[in-house]
Design a protein around this nucleic acid. Sequence first.
DNA 1: GTAGCCAACATAGTTAACCTAGTTGGCTCA
DNA 2: TGAGCCAACTAGGTTAACTATGTTGGCTAC
Lengths: 113, 113
Amino acid sequence: MMVKHTGRPGYLQIADDLRAQIRGGALAPGAPLPSTAQLAEQYDASLSLVKMAVGVLRTEGLVVGQQGKGVFVRDAAETPADEIAELRAAVQELSVRLARVEEQLATSTERPS
Amino acid sequence: MMVKHTGRPGYLQIADDLRAQIRGGALAPGAPLPSTAQLAEQYDASLSLVKMAVGVLRTEGLVVGQQGKGVFVRDAAETPADEIAELRAAVQELSVRLARVEEQLATSTERPS
DNA sequence: GTAGCCAACATAGTTAACCTAGTTGGCTCA
DNA sequence: TGAGCCAACTAGGTTAACTATGTTGGCTAC
């Protein structure tokens, strides 16, 4: 696998990168993503990680998989959630981080007696 | 794996059911989902399927997992309509929480130990 | 020539195993 | 008593193997 020093899970890093490529136009609507095997080699990741990353993008509605053919970028028209997906991912990550910090803070500031 | 014998994948059926429970109020905001082991037994499914189902809900932002504690229904679960408004509200809330945490952090570090 | 088969490729779903790491409550021992 | 360790929970991440199924292009047999 690659850049892990960020603590962000590998499959989310891959999803982030693909999402950025879609948002940036490097992967245009209708265009196919590289195959699972190609992505695995490209990111030096296991097939499992790539499948999980694609699964995230599928759940977000950014891409649509067609069995036997490939995974294709959805049209911006039919994905009013493309920009939202990115924001939602960011907000969710912030929520997790904040929840962790709050918890840590709550336990460390418990009043003695 | 013993879920319905429809064409719908098992992990999506589990995610659907949990989502319905959240939307229906059976799982209130802040409430914890049953543990993955309990869900696996409850749905007579493998741990893998349950983890995938929870992963979908996490990606959707319906729940937030806290390592070591559980998976909890998010407060924003009742905002189905305008996703942008939802995200704006989420950002607003995160800002407030972050400000409060930073405040507490600053005061608590004035006196180490 | 062409109809049909078939191998190679693709996504998708499922399961299991192993590891990391945070939480909690109880037990032991000084 | 109480401080600290420890066992049993918890979610999360990673990998691998197997199956199912759809697509495509080439080869073969007629």
